[in-house]
Design a protein around this nucleic acid. Structure first.
Lengths: 228, 228
DNA sequence: ACCTGAACACCGTTCAAGT
DNA sequence: ACCTGAACACCGTTCAAGT
């Protein structure tokens, strides 16, 4: 683990929320935005409400539930009413997924944690419903849309997790860079295919690659029949 | 976090490995297999070698490096020489990715952690090289193969992470099941697309869905041109 | 009945002191 | 020079005791 951050205190926050489920999640989001997702702990929350850690357990069963509640609150900020534009359904879908990824990349270190979160709140359901509707609008056969929605959301989350780790460069010894330099130094004898494609492995901007990935994914979902 | 497990001790292990990098990783893998990935901590490792935690830091810089070393050792067990069979390149590739996922799903709770691991060891490079070679053999254009290998390995890891969480059902309040029941109870007014496709969202066996996902992904990679 | 201080059982990491 | 005990600064969770 990296060295702990010094708690910033309640700095420029408005009137403190009440000590109940909603208020706790509100303070959790404040801490996450001001510091990082991993700073949101049960003990820290208790301290923020000037009480002992046991008090938080009156309203929230455990850390997993706390994290799920944070993510669902965040999901509430996604704009799900963009179908009215003149874009095609596929364009809208790609935009929505890119927004979702962007949202996950916002708060420091959130993205790395989401993959383990498995949200189930109403806002996540709304996101699923929207993605499904857009796939159907795009002409994807219903069964393929049903199986594909999972894969699209998983891809979005995994992309955020991968990107999130790379963005948060505190040390010089970053894992992402270690892999990159390992690939750059891979010999043609040991790694013939890597050597052959070395120039292309890191080509393109992150935005180009994301668009291509989402397009390829949707194309595959639209073109691959589900077994009877 | 779930309640801590009681350390099992060195039970039926052979002669204890020496206190060096290699020996530490060996013991780490033993602990992971006998208990769980999350049981492998710097302190636990030190205790296993009957010394203080500082001793581990002589050989391994921090937990991130420890986890990376564990994963690369594990990756060494993958069979990368299956091209000799009569299957098509695509079949071999799907089999390899399924094996990789299966390997990640083996040790309890490993899968959930891998997404945050970002391995860069020689065995991970070998895996990348193999996937690339198989994509080329399958006839995928070089630039699409180069951009697609990332996506395929990310998908494998994310699938393992998702599946890994669901398999480890200790409580009744599992997150995966909460999402499932939320979807089953979603009303047609609030979630029209979910209601329409409810029957298909959870259809098929895990194996069928994985095969379909990998096929769709490869199909999309093979059929979507990379921008100039 | 509702809330919480204090305790239990752990973490990762560092550093001064020992061999 | 090499290793490590002890300390620092945290965790999540529970439970007995207080209001």
């Amino acid at each position: 683990m990296s060295p702990r951050r010094v708690p910033v205190g309640r700095s420029n926050r408005a009137a403190k929320p009440p000590l109940n489920r909603e208020g706790i999640v509100t303070v959790a989001l404040q801490i996450m935005h001001e510091e990082a997702f991993e700073s949101v702990t049960m003990r820290r929350l208790a301290a923020e409400f000037q009480t002992g850690p046991a008090s938080i357990y009156v309203y929230i069963a455990n850390v997993a539930e706390l994290r799920g509640a944070i993510l669902d609150r965040l999901l509430g900020g996604l704009d799900l009413n963009r179908q009215a534009t003149s874009e095609t359904a596929r364009e809208v879908l790609i935009g929505l997924l890119a927004d979702y990824i962007g949202m996950l990349l916002g708060p420091p270190s959130l993205a790395r944690a989401v993959l383990v979160l498995w949200p189930s709140g109403p806002n996540y359901l709304k996101l699923i419903d929207n993605v499904l509707a857009l796939l159907l609008l795009d002409g994807v056969p219903p069964r393929q849309a049903a199986w594909g929605v999972d894969q699209l959301l998983q891809h979005a989350t995994a992309t955020a997790a991968e990107h999130g780790t790379r963005v948060d460069f505190s040390e010089g010894e970053r894992d992402g860079y270690r892999l990159r330099s390992a690939i750059e130094e891979a010999t043609a004898e040991d790694y013939p295919a890597i050597a052959k494609l070395r120039g292309e492995l890191f080509s393109g901007t992150p935005g180009q690659r994301l668009r291509w990935q989402l397009t390829a994914l949707i194309e595959g979902i639209a073109g691959t029949a589900v077994p009877v």
